[in-house]
């Protein structure tokens, strides 16, 4: 039995390396052993103990998930098993049940639909209105540097969803059992507490499920 955690960052498009670096640093801060790698193939997805879907463009990631044989099935399977997953910005959109764009309305796009929320894309406006500001996140503190880049927000949540943070009355971080979604980019802040929160979920899940097949 291997106790080393194996965390995958969905390696299709976006700030993949930034999430790998943030997760690696978070593991170090927690004194945990683990590997973090970019995953793009079904067989890689089946080996991991936790998945991060990075920032980028949600439409592009959806398209690339659908196009590779077996990739959508593999991701769906691990999510059904309750494997911890975190989506940052575009990643949260991909996890959501419903989405629409604030400016152009409904867009056809692939959503994994496991996180019971509706998201509004580009909720604060376009890049001109992208911003950084301190956030209050429950379980973390009121000094978290939130980096919002053409960020989505959560418009409505299902009964299982816990709201972790709001900014300007908009929901910007949520948790539903083993799923975390953030409007902002914890991987760019240099503050690894959000990634640590996720790793804690991965550790708990691995302890309870004796890990995936990676021993």
């Amino acid at each position: 039995m291997n106790n080393e955690l194996l965390i995958g960052v969905l390696g299709l498009q976006g700030d993949i390396e930034e999430n790998i670096k943030a997760t690696t640093n978070a593991l170090k801060e927690m004194n945990l052993k683990g590997k973090v790698l970019s995953v793009r193939y079904p067989e890689e997805i089946m080996k991991i103990d936790g998945l991060i879907i990075p920032g980028g463009e949600s439409t592009v990631m959806g398209l690339l998930i659908a196009i590779k044989n077996g990739l959508l099935d593999a991701i769906t399977k691990i999510l059904q098993e309750g494997l911890p997953v975190m989506g940052t910005c575009a990643g949260m959109i991909v996890l959501a049940k419903k989405s629409y764009d604030k400016i152009v309305g409904n867009k056809r796009q692939l959503l994994l639909g496991v996180l019971d929320i509706e998201v509004e894309r580009n909720s604060f406006g376009r890049q001109y209105d992208s911003f950084e500001s301190k956030l209050n996140i429950s379980g973390i503190g009121n000094d978290y540097k939130g980096i919002f880049i053409r960020a989505p927000t959560v418009i409505s949540v299902g009964p299982q969803v816990e709201i972790l943070s709001k900014f300007d009355e908009k929901i910007v971080a949520v948790k539903q059992e083993n799923i975390i979604g953030t409007s902002f980019h914890p991987e760019l802040s240099g503050d690894y507490r959000m990634h640590r929160l996720f790793i804690q979920l991965v550790t708990n899940w691995k302890d309870a499920n004796k890990g995936h097949q990676n021993f």
């Binding site: 390696g11 299709l12 498009q13 976006g14 700030d15 993949i16 390396e17 930034e18 920032g55 980028g56 463009e57 592009v60 910005c89 575009a90 890049q127 992208s130 911003f131 950084e132 980096i147 880049i149 053409r150 980019h185 760019l188």
Partner: peptide, 15 residues
């Protein structure tokens, strides 16, 4: 800020 501008460019990566 430089972080917000450069951060936007980082979101285009691999695209």
């Amino acid at each position: 800020t430089a972080l917000i501008k450069r951060g936007f460019a980082h979101m285009q990566k691999h695209g």
